[in-house]
Amino acid sequence: MATTMAPPAPTAGTTFGPKILVFSTNNISDPGIDLAGSSHLHYSPRAMTIAVPCSSGIAPEWIAYAFDQGFDGVFIASDGEECSYLTDCSERSAKLFERAQAMMAEKGYAPERLKMAAICSVCAEPFVKYMHEFEAQLRELGPVGVA
């Protein structure tokens, strides 16, 4: 997959800037996202983060609700293998991810609108790279709810 380090220019005649909801975790990925800011690494200000204790606690219903409310993409910055609570956090998060995609399919949201990646507490650059790639991909998909 091509790596896009800067968001591409919007297609002619549109100024669509995708809204991205990020779920982070208090101990692991949220400090990584903080570090991106502390390092003054730029990503879209339409990406907004809600921090929760652990990615295994993110309800698929919340993800579906975000699309209902007009978010164009949801990104789960998961604990991965560093979770201090649950040894099998990766597997649990993966199952929730699948459930969320099934729920999205029922509502007619493209499955690519949901992304998940483990973001460690110092993963500032990977996070920003994911944001740029995801934003580019969502621009191609267009606004949520528009066929």
């Binding site: 996202i33 570090l35 800011g37 502390s38 003054h40 730029h42 990503y43 200000p45 339409r46 983060t49």
Partner: peptide, 21 residues
């Protein structure tokens, strides 16, 4: 509310975007 690490410092290039966020 995290206005510094996750807003002002991450969007130093976009005052309007950072303010709306």
């Amino acid at each position: 509310v995290n206005l510094r690490e996750q807003d002002s410092w991450a969007h130093t290039d976009d005052r309007l975007g950072a303010t709306e966020k």
